[in-house]
Amino acid sequence: MQYFLEQCLIGISIGGAYALIAIGYTLVYGILRLINFAHGDIFMVAGYIMIFTTANFPIYISIPITIIATCILGVVIEKVAYKPLRTAPRMSIMISAIGVSYFLQNFATYLFTALPSNYPPIYFLKKQIHIGYLKTNMADILTPIITILLVLILIWILKHTKIGLSMRAVSRDYEAASLMGIKINNTISYTFAIGSILAAVGSILYFTNRASVFPYSGSMPGLKCFVAAVFGGIGSIPGALIGGFFIGLCETLIKAVGYSTFSDAFTFVILIIVLLLRPTGLFGEKIIDKV
């Protein structure tokens, strides 16, 4: 029983980080109908930024710098790689996203070499905690809490602010929204900024427990979070949250039972099953084509 609970905690912690990244996929998809394949690599770059800022600043300054820098990176990528293609077929913009993903990986290899770099230990998050007979650390406990908190804030932004309103409008109908005077480009930039901020927070929580970053450390989490977003219904924020937790938990429990060989396979089997049986995912909107 203790063993089971320990594994559940690990799973929920991984799931929280997955959920934060999955929301980035979902937000961008909701607005641009684009699967932003570079998102996992933004997550990796956030890890590197954190390494370099902590080398020069104390933790409480470097965390905000990391978040802001990642946010700028996300917006710049949108401006450079996606904006010029806004009128192009959707396939071109997706290929551009894949290109950005490879660019970030190889650029990181060039700058930092493929040797894993040492992620700074954040002592506050590393602190060991004992709950009854369960042993865990602060990061594991905090990850799901922060995740849920951020999602609540995000939902509040979407429901009660002007930016949120314009984001919802753009995701409903692109052209009508621009006719209503909504600045499409600004709205899209905000979306990428929010997605990147969440990825930066996710990266801090994720790498604290897995203390090294290398240029490919974003690719596998990126893919899994994409599956999480599809599972929950791409375009839906609660869906991405539940999808992230579900994938994280299943993966950990499968490994715990001793079938670690199949854990990744299982994740992608879920993708196939969801696409076959319920392409809109758990909470996805039904698409109604009006003629």
């Binding site: 991984i14 427990n209 490994k255 670690s260 060989t261």
Partner: peptide, 20 residues
């Protein structure tokens, strides 16, 4: 004997198995 996937970053599950 435990196996892990390429690019795996979380070994705690298989390590707990080994520990037990």
């Amino acid at each position: 004997t435990e196996k892990f996937q390429t690019n795996e970053q979380d070994f705690r599950s298989i390590l707990s198995n080994i520990k037990s």
